[in-house]
Design a protein around this nucleic acid. Structure first.
Ligand SMILES: [Mn+2]
Ligand SMILES: [Mn+2]
Ligand SMILES: [Mn+2]
Ligand SMILES: [Mn+2]
Lengths: 153, 153
DNA sequence: TTTCAATTGTTGCCATGGCTACATGGTAAA
DNA sequence: TTTACCATGTAGCCATGGCAACAATTGAAA
């Protein structure tokens, strides 16, 4: 456990700072991604996306959801008229579709690695937002190679 | 694309709310985990963990790091005397060790799936905080089965 | 020993993302 | 057509996590 024993070497200062910066960027958009994905699902599944349902499914009080939806509107991702349901802009729908595809991909990878579906869904909900395009492509290759046979182990 | 075509079914409202709640919980501790992990690395590697180095490696201004370290102290994870370096409590060291192990595990899984090391390190920095124990065990089994031969694909 | 540059501490600002409490609007049942 | 009830909007509170600006301390070089 001395200095000789541990191969542990810290990454270079700029490299590590860049990584943490990327994590902060991803974190900043994570909630927005979950909201647009949920709104798209509600629109597809129930025909409408009401504030109350969004709040209940997110597990937050309705003013919390209202504030986040206002942020979506400011960023040009969603729109709504007073006392009416929420809709997505073109940009919002594109973000939702990307989020949905990536969400399903992460769930499938975890399932293929032997993670039970409910745990896979729960963990994917957090992990998905930090999966880069490069990693996403590696995930797709893995699914193509092993996914159809079920589980790896 | 009609209702008949899409198999899309939303999870039950309570299940989905639980998932998002877990994501929020994990997010709340993510930054603390990264800080204790970094402090442990600095202590092991440089012999001391100075505020200035922590801030530079996190890529934030020093008052930001100072505030977070105060939070670590309040939570009983870190300690320090005025104008001196930062140390971890027993609890803090345990959290750091768990974070370090999980970090390396996630990186290895990504690498085994064919993700280049630098991308794996970057993505793992975000994903790691949402990997449950169950998923972690599945990751270990995967590494044991395929990790030693290098890459999967 | 003095001095000054680097480090640490502190204050105050902003945005985000939670909450409760209360006000307002819409609608279905009475 | 009223009238409740439910949904939506709004205000104000708190903690987190970023920042810049300034104050105080330390320690090494002069
Ligand atoms: Mn998510
Ligand atoms: Mn998702
Ligand atoms: Mn991390
Ligand atoms: Mn880490």
């Amino acid at each position: 456990m001395t200095k000789a024993g541990g191969v542990r070497t810290l990454p270079s200062e700029p490299a590590q700072a860049r990584r943490f910066g990327r994590v902060r960027d991803a974190q900043a958009t994570a909630l927005l991604e979950d909201y647009v994905e949920l709104i798209a699902d509600l629109l597809a599944d129930a025909g409408e996306a009401r504030l109350v349902d969004i709040a209940r499914r997110m597990g937050v009080a309705h003013p919390t959801a209202a504030k986040t939806i206002n942020r979506l509107k400011r960023q040009g991702l969603a729109m709504s008229e007073p006392y009416r349901g929420i809709f997505l802009t073109e940009i919002g729908m594109q973000m939702a579709e990307r989020a949905r595809v990536r969400h399903r991909l992460v769930v499938r990878v975890l399932e293929t690695l032997g993670v039970p579906t409910d745990v896979a869904e729960a963990d994917a909900e957090g992990m998905e937002h930090y999966v880069s395009d490069v990693t996403g492509r590696a995930f797709m290759k893995f699914i193509d190679a092993y996914g159809q046979f079920g589980t790896i182990s």
